[in-house]
Design a protein around this nucleic acid. Structure first.
Lengths: 249, 249
DNA sequence: TAGTGGTCTAGACCACTCG
DNA sequence: GAGTGGTCTAGACCACTAG
C-alpha cells in the first residue's frame, strides 16, 4: 500500500483524487452514457485503495450528478442531460461557461446603506445597521441578461470601491480574499414578476415584461447570513437545476 | 452490541434510524439553531453504533439541510431558514404542506397523444410514438396556482382514466403502483414567461401576465427519461431551493 | 494541547439483480 | 449462484479549531 501516486495532487484526499481520474475519463467522452463502470472491488484493486475509499469517490460523484448506482446492478455514467446540472453558489459564471458564453458585468453602483427592516430580518442585523450594496447588470457575451442587487454584511470599516469590483473577475472571490467572506450554503426563492420602469430601462425591454425573480440568502460556513441578493432575469434566461431522489427516500 | 432498539423500524438501517432520532429531536424544537450536537464519538457510544455509522447518519442529514458540520469545530443544528428547503421530486405536495396549505388538483384532460419532435427528443422515443398526456390545474387551498402539462412514457397498453387520477391523491404514486414508474432524479429548467390567452383563462389572470415557467424531465432509477412536464405558476408562487457548497468545493 | 471532524484501512455480512 | 452495491465494525492516524 501507500505507493506514491505518480500524477496529481499529493495533498488531495485519495477519494477526490480517484473521483478526478474517473470524472476526467467521463468528461473526455471515453465512456458512453449509462455505461457501467468497473465494480467497486475492481476499482479498489486497480487503484490500490480500500473499497471504502472507492465508495467515497462514488458518493462524491453521485452528489455531483456525474454517475449513479443501483443496488445489485452496478455503477453507471449519468446521461448527458443530467451531467453538469448540479447548482453551486457561484452559479452565474458557471452557467455561462457551461453554455459556452462569456459572463460579464456592469457595476452600476457600490455604496454603504442602512439595512431596511426586511433585509435586516434576513441577515440577522438590526434595521439601520450598515450594509454594503452592490448593484450590477449581468451580461452574457456582452448582452444584458439580468440585474443583481446584493447587500453584504461585512466587517466594520470594510471598504469596497467600484473599480476594485470591476478589476476583479468574481465579486465573491474578491470578498473572500479581502474579508473573511466564506459562503457555504444558500437558500433561493424563485418566482415570476413584471419589469418595473427602471428594470425595463436597464435591460432594454418594455415595462411589465415578464422577469424571472430570484431572491437569495447566502450563509457562511458558520451559517451566519452574509448576503441578500435580489436578481431579475430576462425571460430568455434559463435557470437549470437537478433534483435527486424523492422525499420518502 | 446489537441491543434491540426499543422503538421504531427494525428493518431500517442503523444510520437512518439514528438520523430519525436526531432529526425528530430537532424538528420538535428541543435544540436551538446552530446549537452543537454531541461529538461523533459520544453519539457512537451513546447509541451503541460505530463512529462510521454515526458519520453516515450525519452525512444523511447534512444532505437534507438539517445539520452541518465544521472540521475541528463540531456538528450543529442548521438554522431554520435552510431547514426544509431541500427539493425533492414530489415537490408540489411537499411545498404545500410545508406552507401549511392543502395541495389539490383539477384534472382537465387525460389522453393518449403522439410524441412531438421536441418531446420525443427529450424522452428518447421517436416522434409519433405513443405518450399519455395529463393536463391539470394545481390548487393550493382550493385556489388555482399553476398548470401542469405532463407527458408520460408508459408500458404499451397502459390505460389511465380521469377518474383514476382524481381518486388517487398523488399521480406519481398511482403510476408507481400500477406501472413500473420509479422516478429517481429530475432535471428542471426555470424561466419567466407571459400568460397566453388560454393560461389566463384557466388561472383567472390577464393575458401577458408574468408566469414562472418550469420544464422538467424525470428519469427512472435506470436513468431512462419517463416524463416531461411543463409547469406554469402564478407570480405569487414561490419555488424554494437550497444550494450547497461552491463548485470548487 | 485536548477535542473535533476528515480520511483510510481490512474485513465481514446483508440485500439485491440477473442469467 | 455469482456478482454487485449497501451496511457495519474497530481501530488508526491526520487536519483543524479553540482555549
Amino acid at each position: 500500500m501507500m505507493k506514491i501516486d505518480d500524477t496529481t495532487a499529493l495533498t488531495l484526499p485519495r477519494y477526490k483524487w480517484l473521483a478526478n481520474i474517473i470524472g476526467t475519463t467521463i468528461s473526455q467522452g471515453l465512456l458512453a452514457d449509462n455505461q457501467a463502470l468497473p465494480s467497486e472491488r475492481e476499482l479498489a484493486e486497480r487503484y490500490e485503495v480500500s473499497r471504502d475509499t472507492v465508495r467515497k469517490a462514488v458518493r462524491y460523484m453521485e452528489e455531483r450528478g456525474i454517475i449513479y448506482s443501483g443496488h445489485g446492478r452496478g455503477t453507471f455514467v449519468a446521461p448527458a442531460i443530467v451531467r453538469g446540472t448540479t447548482r453551486f453558489i457561484d452559479s452565474f459564471s458557471q452557467d455561462a461557461s457551461n453554455r459556452g458564453s462569456v459572463p460579464g458585468q456592469r457595476v452600476l453602483n457600490v455604496e454603504p446603506v442602512a439595512a431596511s427592516m426586511a433585509i435586516a430580518g434576513l441577515l440577522n442585523v438590526r434595521p439601520g445597521d450598515p450594509l454594503i450594496r452592490v448593484h450590477r447588470i449581468r451580461l452574457m457575451d456582452n448582452v444584458p441578461v439580468g440585474l443583481h442587487d446584493a447587500y453584504f454584511v461585512l466587517p466594520p470599516g470594510a471598504k469596497l470601491t467600484l473599480s476594485q469590483i470591476e478589476r476583479a473577475g468574481s465579486l465573491y472571490k474578491l470578498l473572500t480574499e479581502k474579508f473573511g467572506f466564506t459562503p457555504a450554503e444558500a437558500v433561493e426563492n424563485l418566482s415570476a414578476g413584471a419589469a418595473e420602469q427602471e428594470d425595463a430601462r436597464l435591460l432594454g425591454i418594455q415595462k411589465a415584461d415578464p422577469l424571472l425573480i430570484c431572491e437569495r440568502v447566502t450563509l457562511s460556513d458558520r451559517r451566519e447570513p452574509i448576503e441578500y441578493c435580489l436578481m431579475k432575469y430576462l425571460s430568455s434566461y434559463r435557470y437549470k437545476t437537478r433534483i435527486a431522489k424523492r422525499s420518502g427516500d
